[in-house]
Simulated scan of single mutants.
Amino acid sequence: AAVIGGVVLPEMGLVPSRVPLSILFNGGVLSVLMLAAPRLLVRMGGWHGLREHKDSPRRPVLIAGAGSAGQMILKEIMANPELGLRPVGFVDDDPTKQGLRIGNLPILGTLADAPDVIKQYRVAEVLIAMPRATGSAIRRVVQAALDAGAKTRTVPGLSEVLSGRVSVSTLRNVEIQDLLRREPIQTDLRQVAQLAHDHTVLVTGAGGSIGSELCRQISALGPAKVVMLGHGENPIFEILNELRKKHTGVDFVPVIADIRDIRRVREVFDTHRPFAVFHAAAHKHVPLMEGNVVEAVTNNVLGTKNIVDVSVDCGVQHFVFISTDKAVRPTNVMGASKRVAEHVVRRAALKHKTNFVA
Rank of each mutant, 00 (worst) to 15 (best):
N292Y: 05
V357N: 14
I107M: 09
L302T: 14
F356M: 05
A193P: 02
F25C: 07
R339C: 09
P95M: 08
V301R: 09
P223K: 04
T187E: 11
F319L: 01
R181V: 05
L158S: 10
P235G: 06
A296V: 06
D198C: 10
G49K: 13
V277H: 13
K305N: 05
V161F: 00
D93W: 00
V141F: 04
D198A: 13
V345Y: 00
V155N: 07
V344M: 04
S159A: 11
S163G: 08
S167R: 14
A66P: 08
G13A: 09
K119Q: 11
G103K: 08
N355T: 09
N300D: 04
V301L: 14
K353I: 00
G291M: 09
T248K: 14
N26S: 14
C314M: 10
P274H: 03
G84T: 12
A37L: 15
Q143C: 01
E233V: 12
V15A: 07
S56G: 09
G157L: 06
A280S: 15
E52Y: 03
G99C: 05
L14A: 12
R43V: 02
Q217S: 04
V226L: 12
Q143N: 07
G157C: 04
L350G: 07
T200P: 02
K225E: 13
N234P: 04
N80D: 11
H247L: 00
P38K: 06
E238L: 11
